[in-house]
Nucleic acid binder design. Sequence first.
DNA 1: GAGTGCTACGAGACATGA
DNA 2: TCATGTCTCGTAGCACTC
Length: 524
Amino acid sequence: MMASCNFQEQFLSIMEVLAKAAVAEINKRVDDSCAVIRLEMTQSQRDIDVLKRKCQIMESELKKTRRRKGFYPMASERSPYPVKIVLNKQRSSSQWRDSEMSVEEDSQPHPTDVEQRVETEPTLIKDEETAEDVWKVDPQEEIRITGEESGSKPGKPPSFEQRHCGEDFITQPNISPRDSVEHYTNSDRAEEPGTTRLASTEVFSTEQHRPDEDDDSLDLVMVKDEKDQTTALAGPDQFVIDESDGQLWTSVDPGGDTDPVCHPDFSFHSTEEYSQNISIFPSHSGLPSFPTMTDEVGPSLHSSIWKPHANMFSAAKHITRHVRTLADETRQQMPEGQSSERLNSSNEGNSLALQPRQHQYRASEAKVRLSECMTGSNIATTSTFSGYSLSRSSFNMVKRMRTQWSSGSTTERRFSCTFCGKSFPRFWQLKEHLRSHTGEKPYTCEQCGRSFTKQCNLIRHAVVHSGEKPYKCTQCGKCFTQRSSMKSHQRTHIGESPVSQYVAPAYPGDPHTSLMLSQTRWNK
DNA sequence: GAGTGCTACGAGACATGA
DNA sequence: TCATGTCTCGTAGCACTC
């Protein structure tokens, strides 16, 4: 009895020590990671400041030039709707900037808007370097990016998403589908006389009504310049998010004909920290989740050996708190409009970009429009998951794409999965692949109700109900439902023992021979 | 409990036709 | 380029045997 008690005490003390050591180690690693994050953010901050200064200088110069020329279009000649102009790289910067400036000036914003716009003036410019701007699907966000913090209550500091939506493309779950629509106008509207020509840009309206179209179809931003026969997404960093098809897509400029640098490829990629640390799907969704920070430490923490120790129980929470605290601190340090993908990924699942979508769109239209977008030298596709909008990951994509451009890398596989980084040569392959992440299973067996991601798998599944076994072993006559099963079975006929087909490892520890041995289990 | 074989499914690669 | 179908590999789960 005494011995047992002593053993228990010793065991507990050992566990306690181990738990403390583990917590310390985890804290250390988190701190290290945070240091990196801070460093990167500081660097980004400097870059942003420089860009802001440049923008301010250019804006002031532009205004001076306009005053000299006396060029200020009348508000009555402008579109009565608030618009967003998407940069077309084929246009000179002065042109689109002029257009945008005039639009914003003529839209007669609320006085507070003006103030805020002045404060955040650099963000007004849909610069080529701010590709994330183009992705916003929410007019509220469009307003926000110009400085107005819609969604945040007066006197209340804006939420992280609100403050960073400009870069993070958060689709607010409480926004109605109609609200989250951006309408495009140029292609189907006659140019109004006196209107400053926005030939190569697409003018978005948050209120515009197109009587010749069903309202339900107004769920996708398709940026396309019909006059120039090139999409306005010609800029390789211009994206559009659509919530129509539960898929994740991107615009691609494979030819690079719109880019002087000839960017060859900007397919999706995901950063490792994103795919590994971000819980994309909320726990209640029933969809698969990527391991979160908590998950990463979870297995060891929740294994039975650790259960008696509260320290270890709290370790994961501690990490979570730590990361959250850091994220909060970082957010406070970050200026408006700045984003950090690392911060995003560290910020645990509850505040991640992928939030439950509360509205659905018509997938069929998305497909049609997708096809439209896929035509031409530029491919404007759209993005979301089933019920989850993309946002911060999109930002990661932009960054990754820019990295690719700057490095001049090119690949045949232009479409990469945001989640796992796998690449595909065809867009539809990526689309199909994404089902494995989104959990979308469009093909359902009528007999058992089971769903499948691919139709061929459903067809193959049908033999379960039919009892058909079309594949027969030529040696023993045994039938199988699948060829792979038969082939696997046939291997058992070879030499009676599969192991005999391989060389026994001379050294049990040798990884090569061990691998061969592992293969003797016939692909198991 | 370990090893083995089978079933069934997930998913990538590829071919083909529209 | 997309949709569809086929082929294929890998693997989880289960049952059975030793």
